[in-house]
Amino acid sequence: MRELKIFAVVAIFSGILYYGVEPFAHGQMHKHVDSNGLVYDGKADIAEASKDKKEAKTKFWAEVAEIAKLKGDVAAGEGGYAMCMGCHMDGIPNMGGVVPPSLEHAGAIYDKNYLIALVKDPAMASNVDHKYADTMMHPMGSVGSMFPTPQSIADVVAYLQAKKAGDVTPKVAYEEACMRCHANRYGKLTHLGTAPVTKSNIMTGYDVEGMKFKQKVAEEQALVAAYMGKLPPDLSIIYRARSHHFLETLIENPQGQLAGTAMPRVGLNQNGMDKVMKYLQETGDPSKPKREALGPWVIGFFVIFTILAYLWKQAHWRDLH
């Protein structure tokens, strides 16, 4: 009995210690940001905006909501999409700061409202209009002239949702949504995609083709860094460096977690978010499935070990008192 009381004292103090330095301290250090449930209605943008921008943002998101009510014509949208492909195609080089991403699964991973907003005004939609105040234009800024009417926007978005909504793997979701800025070296992804398989010259030891690719990546990184203000971090192990909740709310609205950041909102829907988070977890915490498979066996072993040790101890201590 006395031993159990002493154990209770030790356990209580250890528990208090743990609570204080972990959940409590971390709760105090990091502000909590609520998710908007992946609904892109501009609520946070308007709330956070400075006075002179509030009105413009309110108007913009109201118009987006109006367009969302229109019924898009998929066939008409296909014609509009042909204009998108001028930039959003395989092998296109950096344009105005980033490589235009593939839209192969845009309908599957991005939210409908967000896509409408993006075609209407990319800087407003991704909540980085503060970056393009006077001197610079968003690299996709000319899109407005391609889709001048609400109906044309509704059509192209309807097309993306109908025809570009195939199944997407976590890796492809990451490539389309994140890779143009964020490399993932543990996933072997550069800003220009997966490095080609090359070989060293056996007589010199140098892999010239590999070095050429590395140079291209370095040049691309310089352009991205110049455009974004710094090279966006490699996300190989970001899953261990930030909490799951932080990453989700950051992706949903970067300004909410890092006010003033150059990171644009990506506009992922639930499917896209799940896929991207899964990929980040796969590269950042690859041992999870192995841990879960092995854990019960190791702990089971020590439970049996402890029972046997107790019986051994009793055999010796039974006659002592």
Partner: peptide, 30 residues
Amino acid sequence: LSKDVFVLGVYFILFFYLVFYNFSFAMDPV
């Protein structure tokens, strides 16, 4: 020693619970 080994057993159950299911307190995110 027989009692030590028993206490060790209890300790290792906690130890490996932490190893498999709650390790982040020992490996700071930063």
